[in-house]
Design a binder for these strands. Structure first.
Lengths: 242, 242
DNA sequence: GTCTATTCTCGTACACCGTACGGAATAAAG
DNA sequence: CTTTATTCCGTACGGTGTACGAGAATAGAC
């Protein structure tokens, strides 16, 4: 009875029952045996996204990659949206806890954030894929469990801890999205030059004195990592235990 | 000579020369007079995105909305990607400075962030549209100019100020993306119930004691606004003037 | 063995997408 | 007038996600 698209502006988050997706029960001991596996399909899709970006992940390409017919994929995932969910949780399997919780929860949280950043840099499509809300799969839940354990010494209540996890993830995703986009521009010299020329022209129009001054300063080289660490520190050091 | 898609994973940020897009010179006083305008097309696209989400913005829908043939749009924007850029800058026109810089730059920055949040809530497709890096248009630049002015008392150098603007925007976008996704789930009771059932099942499996405890706590109602304000405060109060 | 129920495989088809192409319409310049 | 520049847009092409249904493969019932 639910609409395929909500009546307002939000995208059609019809979605599949998460329990049926992640907690699917025992094997159906009848009928033709599967030729492929959800795992293999997901891995192929991830490899494709890593190598050529998210938009290269089409049902046809994925099917071709594993030598299946296109429609065969639909025996393993009800639609492409779900395949994306599978991809996200699949790569989250790499997110093993960097270390068991020490006593210093702030340091642990920072380590977690750095792990997430490295993870997203390894899979640059992740921030975009995460932006549409998804139900956490088993691997994501394992990582969440670790984070909650790290936050135990804070004495915060459950809701607050979950909130911190969500905010931290959103922060890292936002940062990495910006970081990779920036890197993509820098990698194309003519594009970067065109952008610099444009900004210089704007700065010269007299209506943007602050911008003009900001751009006139010599560009000191800073690594993206350093910037991340600095902002992360501000965010986490500002957290207080109640 | 530039490739339509970079060789690695990043999406094809071919892009148009920003100067030609935003700084286009005088009128071409020859040939048939335009029946439409970039402004009207952009406004129609924005209205569509506001009402039905970003994925409702197709060239055909936009054209139909203003009573044009599909291909006529390409006289005003070279491709859909560019139309998205136009949309982003168009709505940024609403981002007038909330107030001239007071002396308290932290308070001003917080006001800016709240303005941005309200703006993105009004146009929930914005975080997604912003995630792919774009060259700032005139309206975005005006807002940037205001932010730089607010940051003047910090005495930070240009690069640091620009960094703060980028990070703040990314933070707000990340937060709002999460916020609207969360709201979309809550708005569909059966979806929310299914999710709760799933998480309860996971919590009951014995492998997620921290999650079980976090979920068992009574859910105290907190507004998204309060959460935003809290995290924003942490981020901004942590900024220091070098 | 045969039959039947169940499951997976996948070719075909459809609606929709972005947009290249080129001709018709329009308006100013020579 | 003719020329030239510009906009309008119907048609068409290659791509997308996926509904449908026929066929193949397997397991249990008899």
């Amino acid at each position: 009875m639910s609409e395929p698209v909500s009546s307002d502006g939000t995208p059609g988050t019809t979605g599949v029952d998460p329990a049926q997706l992640w907690l699917r029960s025992g094997e159906p001991r009848r009928g033709r045996r599967p030729s492929f596996s959800r795992e293999a399909i997901t891995a192929a899709a991830v490899a494709l996204a890593d190598a050529e970006g998210l938009e290269a992940v089409t049902m046809r390409r994925v099917a071709a990659e594993i030598g299946a017919g296109v429609m065969s994929l639909y025996s393993y995932a009800p639609d492409k949206e779900t395949l994306l969910e599978l991809m996200v949780d699949h790569v989250s399997g790499e997110l093993t806890a960097p270390a068991p919780p020490s006593g210093d929860w702030r340091a642990d949280l920072k380590a977690i954030a750095h792990t997430q950043r490295a993870h997203m840099l390894r899979h640059p499509w992740l921030p975009a894929a995460l932006s549409t809300r998804r139900v956490p799969g088993p691997n994501t839940l394992a990582f969440l469990e670790h984070t909650l354990a790290v936050l135990r010494p804070t004495g915060l209540d459950g809701a607050a801890k979950l909130e911190i996890f969500a905010q931290l993830t959103a922060f890292v995703a936002g940062h990495v999205a910006h970081e990779v986009a920036q890197a993509a521009v820098s990698r194309s010299p003519d594009r970067a030059a065109a952008e610099a020329r444009y900004l210089a022209a704007v700065a010269a129009d007299g209506h943007h004195p602050e911008l003009a001054e900001a751009l006139s300063a010599p560009v000191r080289p800073v690594t993206a990592e350093a910037t991340f660490t600095r902002f992360l520190g501000r965010l986490i050091d500002g957290l207080d235990t109640e």
